[in-house]
Amino acid sequence: MDIELLQGDITTRDVDAIVNAANSSLLGGGGVDGAIHRAAGGQLLEACRALRQTDYPEGLPVGQAVATDAFNLPARWVIHTVGPNALAGQTDPELLRQAFANSLAVAERIGAATIAFPAISAGVYGWDADDVARTAVQAVGNHPGTCLERVEFVLFSDRVARAFQAAFEELRG
């Protein structure tokens, strides 16, 4: 599996699946979540509302992941995951690892060969970019799946990109 680090807009990536750093409501928000909802169009919100009415009436739990179609995005699917909110006291690194690992598992289940991740929880949820980067790179590096050919980390700032680059170099040893 190839791992790529990019800086830019995740909504423009031509991959099978992009990961949405969603809030538990699945109904859109700010940051990456808002950008994905805007770019995908209103059908994404309707798909997420349907998930809330059926499988997740209480919202998607932290660390879990679920897929919808991507509608107006270049990707085929959006994998929604809820990262832990450090500012709300959710500081267990296992929850962060689960957000990445469960997104990879969903990608495998739906047959995605390529996936793009944002820096889950490194924005408004207050996690340190270095911690997010290490956790993300380790989760991908330890993923036992077989159908993923390429994983992209699409990062929003120089600081976060540097953190991921350092974690990637550490993984390669």
Rank of each mutant, 00 (worst) to 15 (best):
V78M: 03
D128R: 13
A129Y: 12
D131I: 05
C48N: 10
R38F: 14
Q53C: 12
I115V: 13
S25Q: 13
V140N: 05
V132P: 00
A133Q: 03
L155G: 01
A65I: 11
T114A: 08
N102H: 09
T12K: 15
G141K: 03
A70F: 05
R162K: 12
E169D: 15
A50Y: 08
R52W: 02
L51T: 08
G63P: 04
R162Y: 10
E169Q: 15
L155H: 03
A88M: 08
L171A: 12
V19P: 11
A88I: 00
V78K: 01
T114W: 00
F71W: 04
T54P: 09
Q43E: 13
P84W: 14
R49S: 00
R49T: 06
A21G: 05
A163G: 07
L95F: 13
S25Y: 08
D55C: 05
A17I: 15
Q138V: 06
Q138W: 06
D55I: 13
N20P: 04
V160F: 11
A163N: 06
A112T: 03
L6E: 11
A136G: 09
E4H: 14
G28M: 01
I110T: 01
C147Y: 03
V132A: 04
I79A: 13
Q165F: 10
T12Q: 15
A101M: 02
Q90V: 11
A101Y: 06
D128C: 10
L95S: 04
A86T: 05
N23V: 05
D131N: 11
E94L: 12
F168T: 07
S25H: 08
G31T: 11
P74Q: 12
A99Q: 03
G126I: 11
L27E: 01
V32M: 06
N72K: 09
H80F: 00
Q138Y: 10
D55F: 09
R159V: 10
C48R: 09
T91P: 09
E46D: 11
Q7F: 02
L155K: 02
I36Y: 06
F100W: 08
A139V: 04
F100D: 08
V151W: 07
M1L: 07
E169T: 12
A47I: 00
Q7D: 04
A163S: 09
A65G: 11
R159M: 05
V132S: 08
D9Y: 12
G111F: 10
Q7W: 04
L95A: 13
G63V: 03
A105W: 04
L73I: 03
T11S: 13
N85P: 09
H80G: 02
